[in-house]
């Protein structure tokens, strides 16, 4: 009857999203008076899950799972859920978790609430607060099926330490040929860059930057902060920056700790996608730009003057504070 959580790892290391999901699972387990069982796949530091309240780890080691495959991973979780008789399964909302969640939901005949931002406000009925209308509103969704799946949004519940001794058990689910009918041919991932999905800080540039040749100062600022770079939609549509940097309602969602918008007006579609970020800074020369209504901190000024100065000052700050 434990709460099951899938803890995603990459190159053997758990993602921060996995620890957040474990923290959230522990919160639900406390509400239900039960404990948390995690499923890890080819991870190395399983015991580290104990820090976030995991009691048992079902450790899967299988070379066939070295590349993510939604059907196969969902199959692993299905068998684990049945093994544990889990009534609640917690996932994060990384690209992989969002990929496998609906497949798992069908396997388990489970209702699925994505983008959860808080612990269930009640467990009978099981009602979860989640983002809807692309961050323009919240929706309280009740799940009525016997097994329930909750996907917890990045940075919404955060990490909660809860030191527990995690028992690590080998778990060997049986995998079927049909689990691998979608074949991963190649993975293309820059390993030296912070990704928008993982970043604590995102520095984003808009049309106010005038052209792709001016992105050097955005990259400098981002490098100084260890941040990922992003952009508004027209910037990617015009080919100034790759589509993978487009954030907003039709681009990637951003739920960073800090979002710095430079030369971005703050159109409703842009804001919808980045609003889940905790702190927002806007740098814009037009004091009437709508972004000022959505930001925590604002600077009215020319980005071409402000950004290089800010980067210099941050470098000094970093040098004095490390």
């Amino acid at each position: 009857m434990s709460v099951l959580v899938y803890t995603e790892s990459e190159n053997g290391k758990f993602k921060k999203a996995a620890y957040e999901a474990a923290s959230y699972a522990k919160g639900i387990a406390d509400q239900l008076g039960t404990s948390v069982t995690a499923v890890s796949v080819n991870a190395e530091d399983d015991a580290s899950l104990g820090k976030y309240g995991v009691r048992k780890v079902l450790k899967v080691s299988n070379d066939k799972l070295s590349k993510f495959n939604a059907d196969a991973y969902a199959d692993v979780l299905t068998q684990a859920a049945k093994n544990e008789d889990a009534k609640v399964v917690v996932l994060s909302q990384t690209a992989n978790d969002k990929y496998l969640a609906p497949v798992l939901a069908v396997n388990l005949e489970a209702g699925y609430a994505a983008n959860a931002v808080a612990l269930p406000e009640s467990t009978e009925p099981f009602t979860v607060k989640r983002n809807a209308f692309t961050n323009k509103a919240f929706n309280f969704s009740s799940i009525s099926s016997d097994v329930k799946i909750v996907g917890v949004s990045k940075n919404a519940y955060s990490l909660k330490e809860n030191e527990t001794d995690a028992m690590v058990e080998e778990f060997s689910p049986s995998l079927d040929e049909s689990d691998f009918s979608v074949n991963v041919e190649s993975v293309d991932k820059a390993t030296d860059k912070v990704t928008i999905a993982d970043a604590e800080i995102v520095v984003s540039g808009g049309r106010g930057l005038k052209g792709p040749e001016n992105w050097g100062m955005i990259e400098d600022l981002a490098d100084t902060l260890g941040a990922a770079t992003a952009c508004s939609k027209p910037v990617s549509d015009m080919g100034w920056r790759p589509h993978s940097e487009h954030v907003g309602q039709t681009g990637k969602p951003v739920a960073a700790n800090l979002y710095i918008a430079v030369g971005i007006s703050g159109a409703i579609q842009h804001l919808a996608g980045i609003n889940a970020s905790k702190y927002k800074v806007v740098i814009n020369n037009d004091p009437e730009a709508p972004f000022f209504k959505a930001a925590d901190y604002g600077i009215v000024g020319d980005a071409f003057e402000v950004v290089p100065q800010l980067t210099e000052k941050l470098k000094e700050f970093k040098a004095n504070n490390s």
């Binding site: 699925y112 961050n135 509103a137 969704s141 009740s142 000022f292 959505a294 930001a295 009215v300």
Partner: peptide, 20 residues
């Protein structure tokens, strides 16, 4: 259906921006 949208809420209004 296995889930039901029971109710909705709007985010709390944002405080004023702090201009620097």
């Amino acid at each position: 259906a296995k889930t039901k949208a029971e109710k909705f809420a709007k985010p709390a209004p944002k405080g004023d921006v702090k201009l620097v």
